[in-house]
Design a protein around this nucleic acid. Structure first.
Lengths: 191, 191
DNA sequence: GTCTATACATGGATAGAC
DNA sequence: GTCTATCCATGTATAGAC
């Protein structure tokens, strides 16, 4: 119970990186242990199984997403400006995205194919973003249904752009398209 | 040389299915052999390695894409109507997409992360579609650069929608968004 | 709590009989 | 050309000393 070391945290942080870079099926526990500077056998003191570690990594990613949303909410009052900031921040990762894809979309896609249990939790990474975006559209006066539709439309544009940015290894695609999305939000009339 | 059986074709067809359903890393050669009704050891008579078989599967997918484009070109003369037909046909797969994702986007994403050699060939599945769509926009009078940008914008919307359709296991997302894309193309003025 | 050594399962690939 | 048996590497997981 009383743990003095930070190995668990290091393993999760290393897992975040390596799972993002190589996917779940493409990474061994030895990969993660090595990146974290922890001997392989010791991993099992902190996590019962590989799936367990993956779950912790996904939970951490989710915390990051929620922290970002909370930060935007705390610093920006206007829902429209919040959405623009959301797009702007996501767009900053374009170099990474060109190399490894979107950290949320790629894991949701990989785990959605086969991993029944993890699929839901990985999918939640996109679900919480959809819900947050929809909440901003609602705050702008759209009815609930319509807000949700617009949220999906925006996220789809972001995810699809990330996928092509990754596939074509070209960060300029993401720069251009995210700027377009930003302008669209800024100009959009919401009847 | 003179082969009487169709085992090679059966292996490729089975590979198309299983790789789509489970991803490359999630499928063993035994899975493919079983689906094709071929004993495991016999696979190696037709394909030197697993990567070799994967390459043949990707090449087959590419042929399918090119056949579809050729068919649309042969039956529809107006570039705008060709794009609408392209969207309509892709949208027909929405039930499958809800279960396994886009057959082209998911493989490009998975292989793009780590498989250096296969990554390019999988990426070509999206590249040829981008080029074909761009050619239609050019035929509509757009300059080459602008046509390419519009093509990426359209494919990004399709891919992102497919990803969310898959993640949320909800084919109605794809139905609604693809109809929206179709309407947008139909109405779009191209100055 | 930590780490080495190792058990055990899976899966790619090959040998060699037919 | 076909198929069985098997080799061997990798990777998850555990045993047990410290």
């Amino acid at each position: 119970m009383a743990r003095r070391s930070d190995k668990r945290e290091r393993l999760i942080a290393a897992g975040c990186e390596v799972l993002y870079e190589q996917g779940l099926r493409g990474t061994s526990l030895a990969d993660i242990a090595e990146r974290a500077g922890v001997p392989l056998g010791n991993v099992y003191y902190y996590f019962k199984t590989k799936e367990d570690l993956a779950r912790a990594v996904i939970a951490q990613r989710r915390l990051n997403i929620e922290a970002r949303s909370a930060d935007i909410e705390a610093t920006i009052a206007d829902p429209r400006e919040r959405l623009r900031e959301f797009i702007r921040r996501a767009g900053e990762a374009r170099t990474q995205v060109a190399t490894y894809g979107c950290p949320y979309g790629t894991i949701a896609q990989e785990l959605g194919k086969t991993e029944g249990v993890l699929a839901t939790e990985a999918g939640d990474l996109l679900r919480v973003q959809r819900d947050w975006v929809a909440a901003q559209y609602e705050a702008l006066g759209l009815p609930c249904d319509e807000a949700k539709i617009r949220a999906i439309e925006l996220l789809a544009a972001m995810q699809g752009t990330s996928l092509l940015t990754h596939t074509f290894c070209d960060a300029s695609i993401m720069k251009r398209e995210f700027e377009r999305l930003d302008r669209r939000i800024a100009a959009q009339s919401l009847q």
